Computed example of a mutant assay.
Amino acid sequence: MAGKLMNAVQYTAYGGGPDGLQHVEVPVPTPSKDEVLLRLEAVSLNPFDWKVQKGMLRPFLPRKFPHIPASDVAGEVIEVGPGVKNFKPGDKVVAFTSRNGGGLADFAVTKESLTVARPPEVSAADVVGLPIAGLTAHQAVTQSAGINLDGSGKEANILVTAASGGVGHYAVQLAKRGNAHVTATCGARNIELVKSLGADEVLDYKTTDGAALNSPSGRKYDAVIHCANGIPWSTFEPNLSPNGKVIDITPGPTSLVTFALKKLTFSKKQLVPLVLIPKGENLQCLVNLVKEGKLKTVIDSKYPLDKAAEAWAKSIDGHATGKIIVEP
């Protein structure tokens, strides 16, 4: 593929939102050691992508301009770099490109260690939401909340906020697999969907009880998988069990201050900031669950690559149900 050009979407400066995206032709990347080159079939957008564009992670990301965003990809292996042992051209896979992006294009390179085989009966769209949203939910449920996905262990009471969103809809399903009693919050239009994913109780976040996070059955939460924004610690605290914790998947300055204060005062109720550490074996676990029909990706909408700006705007809007997917 050396010397060939591909279609891609990039931006050349911070800010600009959807209008800052540019459609360009750039060289197809070449896989280096331990990398594979994929012809992409599906790309999943995440809030992380447009937050990088806004400059919320400067000066760390992006590492340079112009920048091709998006990190969740699924497609077919076209070429393998030196040292790759587990893949060959023609293999169908899902992968995480790393936080350097590169996904909004016809082709992308990924590390072998963060690339997982996709069963032939599973479509690219079925698994492309797993690398960031699925792995975040998996880490929150299994590591931060301590739930075993095989259902062993003590039953826990779990609250998932923004349960119809990208991370939330996976977290509901995984917590239920782990024998938890799941309370969830979402908008009124998504209540039946979230129930269908396994939630035992669903609250409309715009109602009084929903805003207060009150469990309809009066339960206190052992862990909150917090996927929403703008809920203060004072709302969580009275709803937590004596050793309850709030797992914040998008920790900001306020969360970090609360985390530090709770540690310094030896509080039994803790706020736990989650920083995703993507692991190939966890991605494999999620792909297996999808194959077995035990986990599903809810797809909000699909866009072709030439409509990527519309997909970008939809993600920024913040009301997607499940995942927004671009199909090159």
Rank of each mutant, 00 (worst) to 15 (best):
A124C: 05
A171F: 09
K88I: 09
D91R: 10
T142Y: 02
R99G: 13
A140V: 01
L114A: 05
H138M: 07
T161C: 06
N179E: 08
V172M: 11
R118W: 00
H138A: 01
I132S: 07
K85A: 15
G165R: 09
S113V: 09
K85D: 13
T97S: 14
S152V: 01
T115Q: 08
V128K: 05
S113P: 00
L149I: 12
A180T: 09
F87K: 09
D150Q: 09
A105K: 12
N179P: 06
V172E: 10
A133D: 11
A117L: 14
S152Q: 07
I147Y: 01
G129N: 13
T110Q: 02
A133M: 13
A171I: 07
N148I: 00
S144W: 05
I158H: 10
T110A: 15
T110Y: 04
L130C: 06
R118I: 07
L130N: 01
A180C: 15
V116T: 13
A156W: 05
T97W: 04
E112S: 13
I132A: 03
G178R: 13
L174R: 13
K92Y: 06
E121H: 13
R118V: 02
P120L: 08
G103W: 04
A108T: 14
A124I: 01
N148R: 12
A156Y: 08
A125H: 05
A145V: 03
T115P: 06
G166D: 03
A175T: 09
L174C: 12
K85F: 10
A133N: 14
I132N: 06
Q173R: 13
A175K: 08
H169I: 07
P89S: 14
L104S: 06
S113K: 10
G102C: 12
L135H: 02
S98P: 00
V167W: 07
G153A: 10
L130E: 04
A145E: 02
E121D: 15
S113H: 05
K111S: 15
T110K: 05
T110V: 15
V84Q: 11
A156F: 08
R177Q: 15
E112F: 02
L174A: 13
G165L: 08
N157F: 00
L135F: 03
H169L: 08
S152G: 11
G166I: 01
V84G: 11
G165A: 11
A125E: 15
A133T: 12
L114G: 05
A163G: 14
V84Y: 07
P120G: 04
A180Y: 06
F96T: 05
P89E: 13
D91A: 13
V128P: 00
H138L: 15
V128A: 02
S113W: 01
N100L: 14
L159A: 08
V167G: 03
Q143W: 02
A137N: 09
L104D: 01
G101C: 03
F107R: 01
Q139H: 14
E121R: 06
N100V: 14
T115M: 08
A180M: 10
Y170F: 15
L149V: 10
V116Y: 00
E112W: 02
A171W: 07
A108M: 00
E155Q: 15
N179W: 05
